[in-house]
Design a protein around this nucleic acid. Structure first.
Lengths: 208, 208
DNA sequence: TGTGAAAACTAACGGCGTAAGGTTAGCGTG
DNA sequence: CACGCTAACCTTACGCCGTTAGTTTTCACA
């Protein structure tokens, strides 16, 4: 039954379903066939809307990026703007950990990423940073965010999970451990962000 | 001709060849068949030495990690130790950009990563940091390194490469552009690392 | 009213990771 | 020295994968 009277698919529906499957089952179990099945359709039909699988993944990456709030520079304080941006960026990625590699790789057409970058860069320059520094600061904060989002557990800096499970083989302990890991990740990020912004304060006094 | 008199393969030879192919052709064009062909062997033969492809990739990740120098804490100055470690870590990854996702994902059995983490953590504690802070500091510096290594061009914070290529369509300019991108990445990392360590100095005074 | 584009389909190609099972070289034991 | 076991190679095949080609039908527009 080709060409249905009301369309079964749309670019948005495909992209949103892809993200849902990635969240649920991980990045490498996502296939065009599985995605199509979830949409009640045959795999080849997706190619009417996206030229390749990579383009679908690109759309997912742009969707995540679009949720980042880079508006915190409006009041003119670059410190607040930077902190708000970094936290929002990390939150957006942390809500979809399985999709992080799509954003981290930096490959593909990333229109929404360029928009975000522009906003941050503009905010920093507006606040008195030389453009060259604005580029580097945006870069280094992005590094911190991408790194924080990429690694599941900050760590391996604590013992291997299996060791804990062997020592405390009840589920409750296992759950507590996962919560601990997330808290360590979060606190490490906050410490890093705070130290970074504080350190930039020094630089600011010498160049702005 | 099964079971040759002198072995054709070894775990190390397979792992080294995998890294070479990844460096040359990228991560997703590496297949067990291609790897085997490069080694003059059939694909299934690799499974005598590694149980799955992921185990091969894990071995590559551990190889890269093992080249990181975490010995800079020996003289007792945590600032030097941290800077040395971070730079060495980033250098190790930057020499094999196509392999970075293997290290960034944090998946798999990463024995050499745990060894490195232990060394850093120990160095920080030795220098007077409370263990809880040592964990977070090692985490946040690792974030910066992983993020810096993950993104090909810091940026998008500068204009899209294609724009430059359209504007200056000769090869010489393209090469200069790549050099510029690498310099921006490098400088951004150094600025971030410097600011981070400076910021930690403040924290150190209040907790150590 | 007719025509061409668009959105679905079915079928197929080549490549993938990996499992199953065959063959022979080398090694430890009687 | 003989014998059998294990290990390292092989061939073959299964069920996926991304993608292309070609078909049918509906919709939008001239």
């Amino acid at each position: 039954m080709p060409r249905p009277s009301t369309p079964l698919l749309s670019r948005d529906r495909i992209r949103d379903t892809a993200l849902r499957l990635i969240d649920a089952d991980g990045l490498d179990t996502l296939s065009m066939r599985r995605l199509a099945a979830e949409l009640g359709v045959q795999a080849a039909s997706l190619y009417s809307h996206y030229p390749t699988k990579d383009h679908v993944l690109d759309a997912v990456a742009n969707l995540l990026t679009r949720q980042v709030d880079a508006s915190g520079f409006a009041d003119g304080d670059w410190r607040t703007g930077l902190r708000t941006w970094a936290r929002s960026y990390r939150d957006a990625l942390a809500s979809h950990p399985n999709a992080v590699p799509l954003v981290a790789s930096g490959a593909g057409q990333r229109d929404d990423f360029l928009a975000m970058a522009n906003a941050v860069h503009g905010g920093l320059v507006q606040a008195g940073w030389p453009p060259r520094y604005a580029t580097m600061i945006a870069g280094s904060v992005k590094y911190l965010v991408i790194g924080a989002a990429s690694t599941p557990f900050a760590s391996g800096f604590a013992d291997d999970v299996q060791v804990y499970l062997d020592r405390y083989p009840n589920l409750t302990q296992a759950h507590r451990l996962r919560a601990d890991a997330e808290r360590i990740d979060h606190d490490s990020f906050e410490l890093g962000l705070d130290a970074l912004v504080r350190g930039l304060e020094d630089v600011y006094r010498s160049v702005a």
